[in-house]
Amino acid sequence: MTAFGQLLLEPFQLAFMQRALAATVLVGLVCAVVGAFVVWKGLSFIGDALAHASFAGVAAAYVLGQSIYLGAAVAAVATALSITFLSRRARLSVDTVIGVLFAFAFSLGIVIMSRVRNYTGDLFGFIFGNVLGIGSSDLVVIAISGSVIVGVVLLLYKELFFVAFDPVMAEASGLPVAALQYSLLVLLGATVVVAMQAIGIILVVAMLVTPAATASMVTRRFHRIMLLGGALSTVASVAGLYLSYYANVPSGAAIVLVSTAMFLATLLVTNLGSRPRAAAAAAGVGLTAAEF
């Protein structure tokens, strides 16, 4: 065994690192599949909002002694519903309503938390991610919910794709457009909840957006954006965990840094080939990456 081989193998001889690897790869794949819609339908703000809103659910579940995942899911779905409902009722743009609700739900989470005496460790893990603390039962939850999310996207792929491109024609063809649009939001909320513990509430949006955005610079076929995004996510997860292990930095942040590095490298390479189209796509999605 070479010294280098030893360096590669060492981290994953530890059980908690194996669980961390499995969790981040699974989460990365789910995020890439849903992320293709997030990037191309401009859902990153709502994704971010659902992630922050789920924190209120996590805090409430913690206080009530209920399942954290259940609490987060309820909060995310309730927020998604309220956003749609309020933007229709108040005749305000969806963005505005998201801005109002997202801050409200996060504040609610903070208030609930401030009432708990020994909240430190666990709850902060959800905000910044705590993939190294993922237990076997968490992994089971991630695996099952992740498979359900990807399964639903695959089952409804052609309908979601049609509605994303042209909702009016989809309606004219007899597709249940409102139900499909709502399903996409629920899938997004579920993805955020699945990714929450592994990557942290604040960084979930990067998992949703960055790999799919990178893939979009390389291919313009929607299903390939999902596949390539999944591959990029997996690379980022593995490399990020190594970085986390050896440089002793938080794993969620390390994964996002690797993912962003791949985004920038792709941006550079596609621009060196002087393809204006790729450059335009990069400019459009670059904003999201610049937030980090």
């Binding site: 309908e159 049609f162 491109f165 063809s173 007899g174 597709l175 313009r220 076929r221 929607f222 954006i225």
Partner: peptide, 16 residues
């Protein structure tokens, strides 16, 4: 701006 090819758009006519 959505990434969709001509063939994919025409295929949507078959979805119903």
């Amino acid at each position: 701006s959505f990434p969709v090819t001509v063939g994919e758009v025409v295929m949507m006519g078959r979805y119903g």
